[in-house]
Simulated assay, not measured.
Amino acid sequence: MLISRIRRIASPKKALATTAVAAAAAGLALTAAPAQAASADSASQAQAIAHQMIPDAAQYNAFSNIVSHESGWNVTATNSSSGAYGLVQALPGSKMASAGGNWQTSAKTQIKWGLDYMNSRYGSPAAAWSFWQTHHWY
């Protein structure tokens, strides 16, 4: 089915409505992106947040090395086999709710939880990185 072009657009709302009607007539569906995708922090934003939260260069570098290996600084990274989630690959990811209700999309919340975990289990991000280098997990 051929859809004719709209030569003149009176307003963005009208253009969207016209496109939706045309798509529906053609048997297509328009869907919105997931809400969490719009609020998820980018890798560079997550790194900047971590840098602010971890002022010591050695500790930041260790934390960064772990996160780079675990998630590539992707706030919504999910391990398909284990279900580990987020920057620090918490398992289950819902454990990060203890650091904030926005744990699924907030780099700051995930970093806070990850730092608390590394400090309580290993003593520091540097010690966690040392363990990671030997075992390839932490």
Rank of each mutant, 00 (worst) to 15 (best):
A97H: 14
S98V: 15
I6D: 15
A38K: 13
N79Q: 04
Q110G: 00
A22N: 12
M118C: 06
L30V: 13
T31C: 10
L2M: 06
Y60A: 01
A38D: 12
A29L: 13
R8L: 14
S68P: 04
W129E: 09
A58I: 06
H69C: 14
T78C: 00
V67G: 01
S39L: 13
R7A: 11
N65P: 06
I9Y: 08
A128K: 02
A25K: 14
Q133T: 15
I111F: 01
S42R: 11
N74I: 06
A77K: 01
I3R: 07
A15S: 11
A128W: 04
R5C: 12
M96K: 03
A15Q: 09
W73A: 03
I111S: 01
W129D: 10
L30G: 05
M1A: 15
S80P: 04
A23C: 05
Q110T: 00
F63G: 01
S68T: 14
Y122D: 10
S94P: 12
A62K: 07
A24H: 10
A29Y: 05
N65A: 15
P12D: 07
I3D: 05
I3F: 05
M53F: 02
G27E: 11
Y60K: 01
A43C: 10
T109H: 05
W132S: 15
I3H: 05
A32P: 12
Q47K: 15
T134V: 14
W129Y: 12
S4G: 08
E70Q: 12
H69T: 13
A62D: 08
R8K: 14
D116R: 07
W113Y: 13
H135F: 09
L30S: 06
L16I: 09
A26R: 13
R8P: 03
T109L: 05
W103K: 06
A50T: 02
S82E: 14
A26D: 15
Q52D: 07
A58K: 13
A50K: 01
A24W: 08
Q110Y: 00
P92T: 11
A32Y: 14
Q36F: 03
S64R: 12
L28P: 05
Q47P: 11
T76Q: 10
S94W: 10
I111W: 01
A17I: 08
L30Q: 07
P55H: 08
L2R: 12
A22D: 12
A127R: 14
D56I: 06
P92H: 09
Y85K: 00
G100N: 04
A43E: 09
